[in-house]
Design a protein around this nucleic acid. Structure first.
Length: 972
RNA sequence: GGGCCUGUAGCUCAGUUGGUUAGAGCGCACCGCUGAUAACGGUGAGGUCGACAGUUCGAGUCUGUCCAGGCCCA
């Protein structure tokens, strides 16, 4: 006790770590301050602007941001998507590229219009709108939609900036802007020029009450009582049917057999054109109460029980594929209808049995009534089999003149019973009953909807382009296939994309809505459609100047002011010869599919803003659902118009799922806003960088906690390094060539070189997960556990200006600086905070900013080739020491020394103090045959460094000191 | 039902062309330090690699079937 009071207190003579860089990050408060400070950069235009200026003239790396839909707060999906994009842009910038990032929003479309309409209906304003003219009503809706979208964009933009993403938020692309709309119409014109755009009939959900097409989101399902009918259609050729069942001789009945179909919409029977069967199902020829009929074997019992049939006998069975091609006679029509506008059309495939995969055995008869004009499946089947798209129902729900006279003009709802009665009278009705089922209704009028064919615009994927005769499908398969002009990350994206391209149908690009970009098509007085490449370009000029509202507010003559039919080879003859004037044209009512708008962004944003230079762009990056969405729907227009893909690389990420791997429900999990407030953006970004994003990503509150812990490790490492640079000014040069290659500093710089190359390489291949791990390991193991714990002694105890200490500080300064730069793309707040602390930047001086620098270079110093071997040796020795400590009960490793054998003479090159510090022991001796752990407890201990290095003795100031420490405190 | 993908320690992930006893981090347990301290360092225990078959001298790795999950279609 008395000894401790007599010896000098050396603690004050140590160079202990000291820093203002706080241990607690306080991200939630401090990140907004960083944002504000970055805002002062680039002549107050902000960080993005400053980065653009810095990188001007460098090689360009063009990333193109896909537009999120402007609706609602950003969520966990956006978190991953936007962070990954930010990592790309920031790492490319740090790696020496000029990397523009124009963010965008998808602003048109049904979700917004639907939302706005709901509000209008609830507030009672919708009724007032109904009194307005068509154009005026649509303009009113469009104004409301625009205001709503503006609000959403502002909200999302703020949240994305809070995520610390850097992009040109001052000048984003918005799909409702006139310049963007013009860019989309240019693409439409280009496709018209290639002969790919056409108009055709397609069934859609149709509200009879409002006489309008409806989207899925505008349907609500309600119970409804309908008539369920089982109808026999007589075979055209009885023998052919019996042949299919293998019924020969006496077994073959003399009566004509029928095909029994089932439907709950008898009103569509006049439009019946085919019967669909499944090729693999088993069908039976059954005698039911004296009649011969075909139905699926599995359903015989159900159907006959329902009808209370008494005499049921199966004569034979066959498979569906044997029935395909057989003809039948319609129950109440003499001949197939001739499709409108084409009296010479081939109707030979009508009234035959066709094959379809969607036929099920769940209900009905296994033979499906097919009316291509009244059902989506039926339509596809019709296309495959060359059936006309026949729809005898008018917009108001009444039949036109093409149906039998007794139905013409009748409402389809009345027709249900009428058709059933007639079928019963004529003996075709096997059974009829009423039943309840869930049926789609119009969300506004609450009335049942029907499927009805309407004229729609399409982009044909199998039509020959005028350029070289190759179709979009051919071009797309070539571009995604052997041609290899598109790279995929991960590589299976290629297969997925190809699978979809092989089977996709023509693209229906028209919608019957208000909130969107009008398709600039006109109707001629004779009812024909008029839209050519030149006419679209002419209207484009008006829309570029006045926006798409002009379509609703201007008349056809004004819209076509720039159009000259006499110089347009595709113009209709009546316009060319002047027999029809522009005033006689009617404007089309359709708008473009929003996917067409976003799918044209390569032109409307990238080409437009770079005068055509940024095409194709280097990278598109979105969730894997966009293989079918934005990726494919950008690919097709760019192939059509430009003849090549809009992108060189497609990078996809997976989806967020819950901790059990299940789909994330809307209500589950914390909102992103809560996560910001609890963890701060850097922790969330750190988490995103750790993800194997190509797969599904599990997300749970706990993961953010873990990420926060992991973040703190990085932060503490930076803090410890900063705190040991307290008395060190920025080095004049970062030349380490004077360093001894066997020094511990050279070792860590060698480790740095390896890590640095690996991290930069990982960023280059978008392997952020890999960069994350490398950086974490370097901070945690290489620095914290190895280098820093070894150099603590010299940092604390050496004389402040000793060369050894200053060399280590120079190394530390360099490593801290380098780490900040390597971490900057991910931990953008913390990296900048540490970078500024390293330089002692004034809090108000934003000009000191890591984000305007670049990735650090390799150090031009090769550490001694013996280091890996030495480190391996030391690792083994550390185990031996650990064992010796437990065996001999020595708690403090500084009470130990080690004697190392050196048979190869390798150790003589290395500093024994370095080796001792790496092992955490007081001294290392070389010699002997095996590793020997020395108990030094009997040797004197330095009061200052606590080491027993063999030089410790009583000094003039009265303390027990080693030579080094005596020198440091200036005693002898 | 179809296309693409995933399934390795409690959790998050590595595992090259099939080849010793399947690795890392987190978490956990224990220990040390108290001059990085709401920090730091060390040691250790955890796995029949989704299941079942097959190919092979040898399979986490190749093939098939099945189970569970995701995205996109139908």
């Amino acid at each position: 006790m008395s000894e401790t009071t007599e010896t000098p207190n050396y603690k004050k003579s140590l160079n202990l770590p000291k820093t203002t860089f706080p241990m607690k990050a306080n991200l939630v408060q401090n990140e907004p301050a960083s944002l504000k400070r970055w805002g002062t950069l680039g002549e107050k235009k902000g960080l993005y602007h400053a980065m653009t200026e810095t990188s001007a003239g460098r090689e360009r790396f063009v990333f193109h941001d896909g537009p999120p839909y402007a609706n609602g707060s950003i969520h966990l999906g956006h978190l991953m998507n936007k962070c990954l994009k930010d990592f790309v842009v920031r790492s490319k910038f740090m790696n020496g590229f000029d990397c523009p990032y124009v963010p965008g929003w998808d602003c048109h479309g049904l979700p917004i219009e639907h939302r706005v309409m709901t509000d209008l209906v609830e507030s009672g304003k919708a009724a007032k709108l109904d009194g307005l003219s068509d154009d005026n009503r649509r303009m009113a809706v469009r104004r409301e939609c625009k205001a709503y979208a503006d609000k959403q964009i502002k909200l999302q933009r703020g949240q994305m900036e809070r995520l610390l993403t850097v992009a040109d938020y001052e000048d984003p692309y918005l799909t409702f802007e006139p310049r963007y709309e013009a860019g989309v119409l240019e693409v439409l014109a280009g496709l018209c020029e290639q002969g790919l755009v056409y108009k055709a009939l397609k069934p859609v959900h149709w509200s009879v009450a409002n006489e309008t097409a409806l989207a899925d989101a505008e349907l609500e399902y309600q119970d409804r009582e309908d008539l369920s009918v089982y109808v026999d259609f007589e075979a055209r050729d009885a023998d052919a049917v019996y042949d299919a069942f293998g019924l020969e001789g006496d077994a073959r009945p003399t009566a004509t057999p029928s095909f029994m179909i089932w439907t709950t919409t008898p009103w569509t029977l006049p439009a019946n054109l085919a019967i669909a069967v499944h090729e693999k199902f088993t069908y039976a020829m059954v005698r039911i109460d004296g009649n011969y009929t075909v139905l699926a074997q599995e359903l015989i019992e159900g159907v006959t029980k329902l009808a209370k049939s008494e005499d049921v006998e199966v004569l034979a069975t066959t498979t569906g594929d044997r029935l395909v091609g057989l003809g039948y006679v319609h129950a109440f029509r003499d001949a197939p209808p001739t499709p409108s506008g084409d009296p010479d059309a081939d109707t030979s495939t009508c009234y035959t049995v066709v094959s379809a995969d969607y036929v099920t055995l769940e209900d009905g008869t296994g033979l499906v009534h097919t009316a291509p004009g009244h059902g989506a499946d039926d339509y596809q089947t019709g296309l495959k089999n060359g059936l006309p798209v026949y729809c005898p129902v008018r917009g108001d729900g009444t039949y036109d003149e093409t149906v039998p006279e007794w139905l013409a003009g009748m409402s389809i709802w009345d027709a249900n019973q009428k058709v059933a009665d007639l079928l019963t009278e004529s003996g075709h009705m096997f059974h009829a009953h009423t039943f309840m089922h869930s049926y789609p209704h119009d969300w506004r009028s609450k009335t049942p909807v029907i499927f009805r064919c309407t004229e729609q615009w399409f982009v044909g994927v199998d039509r020959e382009t005028k350029r070289d005769g190759r179709s979009l499908r051919e071009l797309a398969l070539k571009a995604t296939g052997e041609d290899r002009s598109v790279q995929y990350v991960p590589s299976w994206g290629r297969n997925r994309m190809r699978g979809m391209l092989e089977s996709r149908p023509d693209w229906c690009i028209s919608r019957q809505r208000s909130w969107g970009l009008p398709i600039p098509a006109f109707t001629l007085p004779d009812g024909g459609a008029f839209m050519t490449s030149a006419s679209v370009l002419a209207v484009t000029e008006v829309i570029r100047a006045k926006g798409s509202d002009a379509w609703f507010t201007e008349d056809p003559a004004t819209l076509l002011a720039h159009y000259d039919p006499t110089s347009d080879p595709d113009a209709p003859g009546v316009l060319k010869d002047g027999s029809v004037s522009f005033e006689q044209l009617t404007k089309g009512q359709d708008i473009l599919d929003v996917w067409f708008e976003s799918g044209s962004s390569w032109n409307a944003v990238m080409r437009q803003r770079s005068e055509g230079k940024d095409f194709p762009v280097q990278l598109y990056l979105e969730g894997s659902d966009q293989h079918r969405g934005w990726f494919q729907l950008s690919l097709l227009p760019s192939l059509g118009v430009m003849g090549r893909p809009a992108f060189r690389t497609l990078l996809t990420h997976g989806f967020m799922v819950d901790k059990d791997g299940k789909k994330l429900s809307k209500s589950s999990g914390a909102s992103l806003k809560d996560l910001f407030e609890r963890y701060g953006a850097d922790v969330l970004r750190w988490w995103v960088s750790s993800l194997a994003y190509e797969n599904d990503v599990k997300v749970d509150e706990e993961f953010f906690k873990n990420s926060g812990e992991s973040y703190r490790k990085i932060r503490n490492t930076l803090r410890f390094m900063l705190s040991n640079l307290n008395d060190f000014d920025a080095p004049e040069s970062l030349d380490f060539s004077g360093f001894h290659v066997h020094s511990i500093d050279a070792w860590v710089l060698g480790e740095y070189n390896t890590m640095r190359d690996a991290v930069v390489g990982a960023f280059e291949k978008y392997a952020f997960h890999e960069a994350h791990k490398l950086l974490y390991k370097f901070c945690n193991t290489t620095l914290s556990a190895e280098y820093l714990s070894a150099v603590k002694d010299r940092l604390y105890c050496d004389a402040p200006d000793s060369e050894r200490r200053r060399n280590t500080q120079k190394t530390l300064w360099f490593l801290t600086d380098a780490l900040c730069k390597l971490l900057a793309p991910v931990l953008c707040h913390t990296a900048d905070e540490a970078y500024r602390a390293l330089r002692g930047a004034d809090p108000k001086d934003g000009s000191v900013c890591v984000h305007l620098t670049g990735f650090p270079e390799r150090v031009k110093l090769e550490s001694a080739t013996g280091w890996p071997k030495v480190m391996e040796l030391l690792e083994g020795v550390a185990k031996t020491i650990e064992n010796a400590r437990t065996e001999r009960g020595i708690d403090n490793p500084l009470d130990l020394g080690v004697k190392l054998p050196d048979p190869e003479g390798m150790l003589k090159w290395f500093d024994r103090v370095d080796l001792a510090d790496l092992l955490g022991v007081s001294r290392v001796e070389v010699g002997g045959d095996s590793v020997e752990v020395l108990d030094l407890r009997e040797e004197p201990r330095c009061d200052r460094s606590w080491k027993r290095d063999g030089t410790v003795k009583r000094r003039a100031d009265g303390g027990m000191l080693s030579d080094r420490d005596a020198l440091a405190v200036g005693t002898v």
